[in-house]
């Protein structure tokens, strides 16, 4: 399930709730992305989504790992709006029968989210704001799965 939220969330609490009662899952990998301060260069991060479009695009993409990694359900939370350094931006937790599939699905989903998900990201620094586009490394990481 994909959730976009403009409110801060606590990844540990989400994981605890998600793992509760999973007697047959075996493995839940999780990844939490945090906003970086860049040693004072980043005052805040602005993340813009297109309501009704962004979540649907992510959910459509997240169908792919299911066949590939034989996953069960999943939780994926992504922040929008203005984030302070240290706040959680993204949390993803794919559950699987065994650890390898869970790790790989986590890596796969994060490469997509990092480089291709429909967000627009603005870094607010002491000198002003700057829109950010994916780096060549982000694109290369995502192409590993093509």
């Amino acid at each position: 399930m994909v959730t976009l939220t403009s409110e801060p969330f606590e990844p540990g609490a989400v994981l605890t709730t998600f793992c509760a009662g999973r007697n047959e899952t075996g493995a839940v990998a999780s990844f939490t992305g945090l906003a970086r301060a860049e040693h004072g260069a980043a005052l805040a991060l602005g993340l813009e989504a297109y309501p009704g479009f962004t979540a649907a695009a992510i959910a459509a993409f997240a169908e792919a790992p299911w066949a590939r990694f034989a996953l069960q359900d999943y939780v994926l939370i992504h922040r929008t709006g203005r984030l302070a350094p240290g706040e959680a931006i993204v949390f993803v937790a794919p559950p699987a029968g065994h650890r390898r599939a869970a790790f790989e699905a986590c890596d796969f989903l994060m490469d997509y989210l990092k480089s291709r998900a429909p967000f627009w990201k603005k870094e607010h620094s002491p000198g002003g704001g700057r829109w950010i586009e994916p780096t060549a490394q982000d694109r290369t990481d995502a192409q590993r799965w093509d």
């Binding site: 993340l47 989210l113 990092k114 967000f119 627009w120 586009e133 994916p134």
Partner: peptide, 11 residues
Amino acid sequence: VAFLPPMSGGW
């Protein structure tokens, strides 16, 4: 109609 500049990806 929405005009979408190159998407940055999240996180």
